[in-house]
Simulated scan of single mutants.
Amino acid sequence: MDAVLDALRSDEPELPCVDEEIRRFIALAREVHRAAEVVILEGPASLVKVTERVADASSGLSEVMRRLADNARAGDVTRKAEDMALAVERERVLYQEVRAFRLAARGVIGNAA
């Protein structure tokens, strides 16, 4: 996430670099969503909501990052400042949701031992 946002911050982003970082981010985001599906389907019910919040936060950030990249390719900077601020906020939310998931998972693992 940070690499994509850093690449997009430039006034004239290097689009091949942006595209490569986005490909890496999307691959990782897909892994997160697959793992979330496993937890939702096979994990304890107590982790379903917190897992869904992580997946939703990841999707929300991905949406803004794709829009930033699409606009950079098109040379459209009209929403760049607004979208960068939104991306930073959504990144913060994602980190919070991941932290909440870790705490909830630790509670489940601790109770299972």
Results as ranks from 00 to 15, higher is better:
residue 3 A to D: 15
residue 3 A to V: 07
residue 4 V to A: 07
residue 5 L to T: 13
residue 8 L to M: 08
residue 8 L to G: 00
residue 9 R to M: 12
residue 9 R to V: 02
residue 10 S to M: 12
residue 18 V to H: 04
residue 20 E to H: 10
residue 21 E to Y: 12
residue 23 R to K: 11
residue 25 F to N: 02
residue 25 F to V: 01
residue 26 I to K: 06
residue 29 A to K: 09
residue 30 R to K: 13
residue 30 R to Q: 12
residue 31 E to R: 09
residue 32 V to M: 04
residue 34 R to M: 09
residue 34 R to E: 15
residue 35 A to S: 11
residue 35 A to I: 05
residue 35 A to R: 13
residue 36 A to G: 08
residue 37 E to K: 14
residue 38 V to N: 08
residue 38 V to C: 07
residue 44 P to R: 15
residue 44 P to E: 15
residue 44 P to S: 11
residue 45 A to Q: 13
residue 47 L to E: 08
residue 49 K to N: 09
residue 50 V to W: 09
residue 50 V to M: 09
residue 51 T to N: 07
residue 53 R to I: 03
residue 54 V to P: 00
residue 54 V to N: 00
residue 55 A to M: 12
residue 55 A to H: 05
residue 56 D to F: 08
residue 57 A to M: 04
residue 59 S to D: 15
residue 61 L to Y: 04
residue 62 S to L: 11
residue 62 S to G: 14
residue 63 E to L: 13
residue 64 V to A: 05
residue 66 R to C: 13
residue 69 A to R: 03
residue 71 N to F: 04
residue 71 N to P: 01
residue 71 N to T: 03
residue 72 A to K: 03
residue 74 A to F: 04
residue 75 G to Y: 00
residue 75 G to V: 00
residue 76 D to E: 11
residue 76 D to C: 07
residue 76 D to F: 01
residue 77 V to W: 11
residue 78 T to L: 06
residue 82 E to L: 11
residue 83 D to W: 10
residue 83 D to V: 02
residue 83 D to Q: 14
residue 84 M to Q: 07
residue 85 A to S: 13
residue 85 A to G: 10
residue 88 V to F: 02
residue 88 V to R: 04
residue 89 E to T: 10
residue 90 R to L: 15
residue 91 E to C: 07
residue 92 R to Q: 14
residue 93 V to K: 12
residue 93 V to A: 05
residue 94 L to H: 06
residue 95 Y to M: 09
residue 95 Y to D: 13
residue 97 E to G: 01
residue 97 E to R: 15
residue 97 E to M: 14
residue 99 R to V: 00
residue 100 A to F: 03
residue 100 A to H: 08
residue 100 A to D: 13
residue 101 F to W: 14
residue 103 L to I: 10
residue 104 A to Q: 06
residue 104 A to V: 05
residue 108 V to P: 05
residue 108 V to K: 02
residue 109 I to W: 08
residue 110 G to C: 02
